[in-house]
Computed example of a mutant assay.
Amino acid sequence: MQFGIFSVGDVTPDPTTGREPTENERIRSMTTIAEHAEAVGLDVFATGEHHNKPFVPSSPTTLLGYIAARTQTLTLSTSTTLITTNDPVKIAEDFAMLQHLAGGRVDLMLGRGNTGPVYPWFGQNPADSVPLTVENYQLLRRLWDSEVVNWEGRFRTPLSNFTSTPRPLDGVAPFVWHGSIRTPEVAEVAAYFGDGFFANNIFWPASHYERLIGLYRERWEHHGHGPGESAVVGLGGQFFMRRNSQDAWNEFRPYFDNAPVYGHGPSMEDFTSQTPLTVGSPQQVLEKTLTFREHFGDYQRQLFLVDHAGLPLKTVLEQLDLLGEILPAMRTEFESRRPLGVPSDPPSHADRVAARMVSSEPGLTIG
Rank of each mutant, 00 (worst) to 15 (best):
S59A: 15
T84A: 13
A37C: 02
R112Q: 08
F155A: 05
P328V: 15
Q283H: 08
G196T: 02
A354I: 02
M330R: 07
P15F: 07
A46P: 06
A46G: 11
R142L: 06
R26G: 01
N114L: 10
G9I: 04
A173F: 04
T183V: 15
T85F: 03
L139S: 11
S230F: 06
G111F: 00
P174F: 12
F334K: 07
Y262G: 09
T75F: 02
Q302W: 12
L311F: 05
A329F: 04
G171N: 07
S7W: 06
V232C: 06
P88W: 02
R243P: 02
G179I: 07
N200R: 03
S164T: 05
G324Q: 08
S160G: 00
T32W: 00
T133D: 03
H349K: 14
Q238F: 00
D87F: 01
S348K: 14
G9E: 02
L305D: 03
I213P: 00
A102G: 06
F203I: 03
Q274I: 02
S79G: 13
L305M: 13
P205Q: 08
D307L: 01
G111Q: 02
F198I: 09
Q2N: 15
G65L: 10
D351R: 01
G236Q: 04
D94L: 08
P168R: 12
P131C: 14
R356E: 09
H349E: 04
A259Y: 10
T84N: 04
D170W: 01
P227F: 07
D247K: 09
F55C: 02
I181M: 14
H295S: 15
V172H: 05
P328M: 14
Q2S: 11
F252L: 09
T157E: 15
W121D: 14
A355G: 04
L286S: 08
L82A: 06
R112L: 06
P282W: 13
W144I: 12
H178L: 11
E185H: 12
E229P: 00
P13Y: 10
N150Q: 10
E333N: 13
D270H: 13
L139H: 07
I67T: 08
A46D: 06
N200F: 12
P168D: 12
E218H: 06
G104I: 03
H178C: 08
I33P: 04
G18R: 08
G367R: 15
T80H: 08
P158H: 09
A187W: 01
P328A: 15
L313Y: 01
R141N: 09
E25C: 13
M357K: 14
R243E: 15
R26S: 01
G297H: 10
A92N: 04
G324R: 04
D321Q: 06
P166E: 07
V316E: 05
V176K: 10
N161I: 02
K314Q: 13
R331C: 12
W204G: 01
L323V: 02
G48H: 12
P343G: 10
R105S: 14
G18P: 03
N250V: 11
Q274N: 10
P117I: 14
R154P: 00
R105F: 08
L286A: 03
T365N: 12
W121C: 06
R356H: 07
